[in-house]
Amino acid sequence: MTPMVVFLVWLVIGLLVVFVYAWMAVSTRGAAGEEAAYQALGRLRRPLFILMLVVLGILFAFTIPRTPYPKGQIPDEVVHAVGKQFQFALSAQPIRNDEEFIRASATPLKISRGRLVEFRVTSLDVNHAFAVYDPDGELLGQTQAMPGYVNRLLLRFDKPGNYTVLCLEYCGLSHHIMRIGFEVAEPSPATSRLSNLASRR
């Protein structure tokens, strides 16, 4: 479900709730207060319970297979991603200390289009979040960057262009400027041949 679909679902249900509340409020005009009306709404309890159970059950069944957690996929590339107040560093090599962090944060990263990339995300100080936005500003996905833990975020980039990583976990006074970019480019012929070979295997 895209964010817009989620919004529309919320909007439709929300408007339905407003309509029902308005209807109920209007029904009080000149009402005598019959017990039958109270009983009538009480009888809706069971159908409402079953309806909610069914709707939420379907939503659960539809979305659980789509959770973003790694499910044993083998990535085409591994990128180490580290957060540190108020910068990110990305590198194909592990980033274990401040020196490696400074070196990696100054080196631009390029990824070939269509490849499954595993970001190994962690932090050298406080909690950050590693959120990847595509060239159109759409949020593709995210994971937390936490000191002492490595979270594995798998993303495939089908659209070439400049991607942006923003920090989505509040991490201090310059939180809103913490960012890094990387480029997704068309694969070179040599990389394409290697990818094709890998996929045939």
């Binding site: 109920m24 409020a25 109270y38 709404l41």
Partner: peptide
Amino acid sequence: TLAQVYRRPV
């Protein structure tokens, strides 16, 4: 809450 309101002289 709705049952408290529906066709009652609130």
